[in-house]
Amino acid sequence: MYRLLACDIDDTILAPDGSLPDANRDALRELHERGITIVVSSGRATVSVRRVAEMILPLADDEYLISFNGARVTSALSGNVLFEQLLSREAIDIVSRYARRNNLVLQGYGESDFISETNDARCAAYARATSMDFRLVADLGAALPGGCAKLLIIDEPEVLKRHYPNLMAESGGLFVGVFSKPTYLEIVHPAVNKGTALRFLANRLGIPIEETVAVGDSANDSEMLEAAGLGIAVANAREELKRTADVVLEKSAETGAIGELAERFFS
């Protein structure tokens, strides 16, 4: 019997156009009413994850949010931070210098906004997609002296693939990179991933990891699927994630993947 369901947001709960399919919303509401612990898990900032969670369920403290690719775990209603692992100021400075040298669009995160040294159209598009405020700063590291949960580089897939090994070669063990989308390279602390966050939360709640289910679509979901008792990929998932998953659903995010999951594994 499974007691906890951890769901990625983009292209898993939400359709590619950002809409919430009725079948996904209704399935999550029904599971919550039956006592299943719902965890909304994403690379997004906490404030953005919380907004999506509010679209699905009335917020309660038996619902949880994994944000920043696992760098933070919070209670959905109270916002209490249960776990957090930040990038250091040194890590931020290394990535910032690399981004400046190579004319890359780099973002950091405050509590309710995201921050960049570049006023680029991609920042404006990201603000619209996540409903977050954007703040332009002269120096990212100086604006985040206490560190931050993650950094994000937005560019074309071929550009990010070209820069990825070079940037990682400069990491000094202070950060790692993961692709949440082909156009998003996310930079986090080496100890951070969604799988670590899921294990932490299951342990805190006293739920054996074997009694958890995780579902996602992209490379940054792989550790979460591997950690869970049952790891599931939606039909529209990246091929590398499908190879990691225990099960690949027949339905995609936009055709009601979460509804299929609920019917097959929680009935």
Rank of each mutant, 00 (worst) to 15 (best):
N119F: 01
P165S: 01
N119I: 03
L167Q: 04
Y109D: 11
E170A: 12
T118R: 14
S180Q: 03
F179Y: 15
A124H: 13
E156V: 00
D133F: 02
A169F: 00
A121G: 02
V176E: 06
A169V: 00
E170D: 06
A138L: 06
L152F: 11
A169L: 01
G147R: 03
K150I: 01
A143V: 00
L174W: 04
E156A: 06
D139H: 15
G108H: 14
E158H: 13
P145I: 02
I153G: 08
C148R: 03
N166A: 07
A142S: 09
V137A: 07
H163G: 11
V159M: 04
P157D: 12
F179M: 14
A142I: 03
V178S: 15
F175K: 13
E111D: 10
L140M: 11
N119W: 04
F114Q: 13
A127T: 01
S112R: 04
G146L: 11
F175P: 15
G172E: 05
F114K: 14
G110P: 08
M132D: 13
L140E: 05
A143M: 05
G146C: 03
A129V: 04
R128Q: 11
R122P: 03
M132Q: 10
L136C: 00
N166D: 09
E111T: 10
I115C: 14
A124C: 00
F179R: 09
E111W: 08
G173A: 04
E170V: 02
D155V: 01
V176H: 12
A138T: 05
S112W: 05
Y109S: 09
V159L: 02
C123D: 14
C148F: 03
I154R: 03
Y164K: 14
G173S: 08
G147T: 12
E170L: 14
V159E: 04
Y164I: 01
L167C: 04
D139K: 13
A143P: 08
A138Q: 05
A142G: 09
L152G: 00
L167T: 05
F175A: 10
V178F: 03
V137D: 06
R162S: 12
R135W: 03
G110L: 01
S131E: 11
E156S: 08
V137L: 07
A127V: 08
M132T: 07
D120S: 15
E111S: 08
A169D: 12
A143S: 15
Y126N: 15
I153P: 14
A143R: 13
P145M: 02
S171Y: 08
G110F: 01
D120C: 07
C148L: 04
A169M: 01
A143Y: 11
A138F: 08
A169N: 06
V159P: 03
S116Q: 11
D120E: 12
